[in-house]
Amino acid sequence: MQNVTPSLMDILVFRLSLLKPLIFLELFFETDATSQKILTMLSDLTRSLNELREEVRAIRNTGSNESVDAGVLPLDLPLHNIEELNNAEAALQSQEANKAMLRRFALIGGTTLEVQVCRVMAYAITNELASVLNWAGKKTKDQTKQKRAFKDTASVKCLTDNVTQLNRENKKMKETVIDLQACGMRDNLVFSGIPEAVGEDVETTVKSFIKTHLKLPEDTVKNIAFDRVHRIGPMRAATGRPRPIVAKFGHFKQKEQVKSHGRELKGTDFSVNDRFPKEILERRRVLFPIRRGFIQKGSRAVIAVDRLYVDGQLYRDPGITPWLY
């Protein structure tokens, strides 16, 4: 196991490089009521960026190039032998010492969670100590071949607490990104089953469909404003099902008005639906059969984005809806 100690400056600059592009997402949204939620979440994300900037500025002011080992720690790392491990166990009984170690481990970077765990282990113990440890322990008559159990040590608890915290933060960040994507699609509708013609004007095709099949008045259809209308995916064979059309409406109320007439398509090969990110679509596919089961039992079941409400109560099950936990 190789001892990896990247500089604190390198770690912070790397984390800054990951967060900085989030600021420029604001350029893609108009500052109206529709995008307010997106901008609010962006401000929460960029708050972390500002905190990191302050850390970098403080380091630059000292004129130093500290490594991860610098600063006040409850013990010296890496640990080299059993005696140092025993001392670490005693030190980590203190809650403050645990928090200090968690903060230090959190500074160690990694492109994935697995890489970060490996780097934390390399930072915490040497090969010499690792060679006399075993996850569950190993007892033999030969005293020289016995290995100490590592899984119940305070050091491991500190490491696992850090991994748990990272998992929680990664999940929160992922959900924030999915929520941002969903907000960016809230003005979109997906029209499926509309025949496709070479060289078609897709916007004209959609307006004709809305008038003919959704039965909206002609004057209403003329006033509908689109930001963009296009088909999804590459051209298919003439015998294949036509590609869906994504229409981004200029006004949310117009989009909702068109969507409300979707009942006119019952019993046809056409459909009109909200557009969602891939992750939410997968969650909805899980919820649809469950919703159907509740309806068959006489309950009122409604799916809102990626949540199922049964008789007004949110349906939650760790094995089925893990994204709610």
Rank of each mutant, 00 (worst) to 15 (best):
V4M: 09
V4R: 07
T5L: 03
P6T: 02
L12Q: 14
L16F: 12
K20N: 11
K20L: 15
L22T: 13
A33I: 06
E51D: 15
E55W: 10
V56F: 09
V56E: 04
G71H: 05
G71A: 04
P74S: 05
L77P: 00
P78M: 09
E83L: 15
A88W: 02
A88C: 05
A90W: 08
L92N: 01
L92P: 03
A97R: 02
L102P: 04
F105R: 08
A106T: 04
G109I: 08
T111E: 12
Q116P: 01
V117N: 06
C118T: 02
N127Q: 14
N134S: 15
A136Y: 10
K141G: 02
K147A: 09
F150K: 01
K157I: 00
M173V: 09
E175I: 08
N188E: 07
I194R: 04
A197P: 03
D201N: 13
T204A: 07
V206D: 03
I210T: 01
I210C: 06
L214V: 05
E218Q: 02
T220N: 09
F226W: 05
P234T: 11
A238S: 15
P244G: 11
V246Q: 13
V246D: 03
E256P: 00
V258K: 01
F270H: 13
V272T: 07
D274N: 15
R275G: 06
R275E: 13
E279L: 06
E279W: 10
R285G: 12
R285Q: 14
V286C: 09
V286T: 15
F288N: 13
R292T: 14
G293N: 10
F294M: 02
F294N: 03
Q296M: 05
K297W: 14
R316H: 07
